[in-house]
Design a protein around this nucleic acid. Structure first.
Lengths: 318, 318
DNA sequence: TTGTAAGCGTTATCAT
DNA sequence: ATGATAACGCTTACAA
């Protein structure tokens, strides 16, 4: 239509194509006028790349938002916004629940649809996905602790975070600690114990899951069995919220009677009454760091594993 | 490699391609063995479609998660998981903040990269995007109220929801109502007024934004100027949480002294102490309905606008 | 049922 | 600086 070859048009939109400024201006202007826009599939096929980053995370529920994941995503999005890449978000429900989406995720990665992937550790699906990415030679970054050895990992030292909580309890004169969480928190549990020092001798463990309801149940059960408990570390903030709510309903004062510390420092922790003290993982930084590492990987720059420091944020619940 | 043509291989992976069951089995098995997987770009180019759905929403902040959006996304994801489509999540920061991503979103839509889009109303960027999708003839669904007339919309009747809150306040003997929110809540404000009936005469409006901090400030300002206020409707739950927290800190009892109702019924509303009563928008249903409508649109089936009913959920704050 | 071959809309490598 | 033209790896008539 413009009396120029397709090659010239391609050059007009490419950064490095040698083309006279005049024709480029002309083509750009005409394209605007005609509503022309390069077909993304053809472009991807020809140049065999993509500008989509895949974000894969274990999904706990299709009903409840996972505040942990969301804040990581926020961090990732912030860097993608500046690079012009697009984010594809892929929840991974446990495969046991029927024929999950893992197969289709696998195909997508294998077929070259993604420029890179960020995978949150925490389920067997995550591990499989990392193996797929590696086999397909697609750049990947893992967030969290995974059995697999890899340099492409961002982790947080939650053992140190838990230790911080333990020390705080000791320092503030608590003597009867409890820990509420899942079976998979070995790292946190160990750290907490270390932080408590001698006080760890009387430590009570309670596997209360990771939900709000779990926290409420944990309070009731612990209160009945171990009324002496005066401080609690919860594996996450939602659990802590549930525990606190039930405690207040039972006329137990927080933090006077029982001091509570949560984990993750998810946004709403500070909204709660009392505001939840928490071991902050700096989720936003976790996400943005992962994204930055991924781009280094994609660009062939050397990438070294990163460790995000934990911090104990004292608010009203302890 | 297999002694069959590429066409046959293509047929083996296509649902409708006529092929003998034997060769199909053979090809599938070999593909598995060799790690073959159809190139997605070539496939998309050739068949000129895509299995990616774009989700576009106004982003309030790169730091704070938007609970409203997240729960909608959860609903969308649930239906996508069953259709095998992939979700691309695209926050739209206000364009005023430099050269935003809208241009690249535009190109992506125009170039046919998306099978369909779901757009959340609420900013001028949303409106532009709808126009782009329409011009590009890409199937789209709008969530929320937008100036544009369209049949491809899912809305919620928040005027009725607000009226429910107003009626509840009247019925429970409140006489001095206040409304806290933004300038854009005309619909909610009007509904609230209607629900209040005669009591609306003493209604106080306060534009406190939509943040947690805004809710806290609103409490202080209103308390000083209008100490008689005994019930408050907040434009969202985060605002309500901020208001409640500050009230409790100021020794005002919730709900005895002031009854408060939030909006959206975001997950953490029920975690709060006191649990926040809220006008529920059923965000999850909003998302899943939008996704279902989009697939109807994509499949050429007739699609009619949907209205999600609001419901007043009474918990502890009123 | 299978093979042949013409697209799909780019990018990249040559020439010119 | 620009124009031919060959990939890129599929899908889909059409032919066998």
């Amino acid at each position: 239509m413009l009396g120029v070859s397709t090659a010239t048009v391609s050059r007009a939109f490419s950064e490095k194509g040698r083309i006279s400024e005049k024709t480029r201006q002309y083509i750009i202007a005409k394209a605007e006028e005609l509503g022309y826009c390069a077909n993304i599939h053809a472009r991807n096929l020809s140049s065999s790349n993509s500008n989509i980053i895949g974000f894969f995370y274990p999904s706990i529920s299709t009903e409840q938002p996972d505040y942990f994941i969301i804040e990581i995503q926020l961090g990732i999005n912030q860097v993608l916004l500046s690079t012009g890449n697009l984010l594809q978000t892929n929840p991974m429900p446990p495969e046991s629940q029927g024929n999950g989406p893992l197969a289709s995720y696998r195909d997508y990665i294998l077929s070259g649809g993604l420029a890179g992937v960020i995978i949150v550790a925490g389920s067997s699906e995550s591990v499989k996905l990392v193996e797929i990415a590696r086999a397909a030679e697609v750049p990947y970054i893992v967030i969290g602790h995974m059995g697999i050895e890899t340099q492409y990992t961002v982790t947080f030292d939650n053992a140190i975070g838990a230790a911080l909580a333990g020390k705080y309890f000791v320092r503030t004169g608590r003597h009867h600690p409890a820990y509420i969480g899942g079976h998979l928190d070995k790292r946190k549990q160990k750290g907490f114990r270390e932080g408590l020092g001698e006080t760890a001798a009387s430590l009570i463990f309670h596997t209360g899951g990771h939900t709000f309801g779990g926290g409420a149940t944990a309070f009731r059960e612990l209160r009945e069995k171990y009324p002496e408990i005066d401080c609690v570390l919860c594996a996450n903030d939602v659990l802590a919220a549930g525990f606190i709510k039930e405690a207040i309903a039972g006329d137990v004062r927080i933090p006077e009677d029982i001091a509570v510390i949560g984990f993750d420092d998810v946004r709403f922790a500070r909204y709660n009454t009392p505001a939840i003290s928490s071991v902050s993982l700096n989720l936003h930084l976790l996400g943005s760091t992962a994204a930055q590492m991924l781009f280094k990987y994609i660009n062939g720059e050397p990438v070294t594993p990163e460790l995000i420091r934990c911090e104990l944020i004292i608010r009203e619940s302890c």
